[in-house]
């Protein structure tokens, strides 16, 4: 699979990362290098090998259903560029 400039532009836009038009060819070529490496990895025969999800055997940590957090509106809104009446205020998003 080869990434062209249009695909690079689209990926950048989906990730909300601004990439200037003249930087796209290089980005596309970097993507291709990464994908090339991954293609190389797919040559390894992993038939019957379980995907490794952890280096040491571990069980997903669980929590009890108890309210232990929250009630900190001021802290939650502290870094917001704009907040009003307890809400985050953001530029209007309309469907």
């Amino acid at each position: 699979m080869s990434i062209d400039i249009d695909t690079a532009r689209r990926v950048a836009s989906l990730a909300r990362i601004r990439v200037e038009e003249d930087a796209l060819p290089e980005l596309a070529s970097e993507f291709n290098a990464v994908l090339g490496f991954i293609e190389q990895l797919t040559e390894v025969d992993v038939e019957g090998v379980e995907p490794m999800t952890s280096v040491t055997p571990q069980r997903l940590k669980r929590r009890e259903d108890v309210v232990t957090d929250g009630d900190q509106q001021d802290k939650i809104l502290k870094n917001a560029p704009d907040a009003r009446e307890g809400f985050f205020a953001v530029p209007k998003v309309v469907e």
């Binding site: 704009d82 009003r84 009446e85 307890g86 809400f87 985050f88 205020a89 953001v90 209007k92």
Partner: peptide
Amino acid sequence: MDPTMSFVDL
């Protein structure tokens, strides 16, 4: 709630 802003509650 506002003509130019959207308000977000998490």
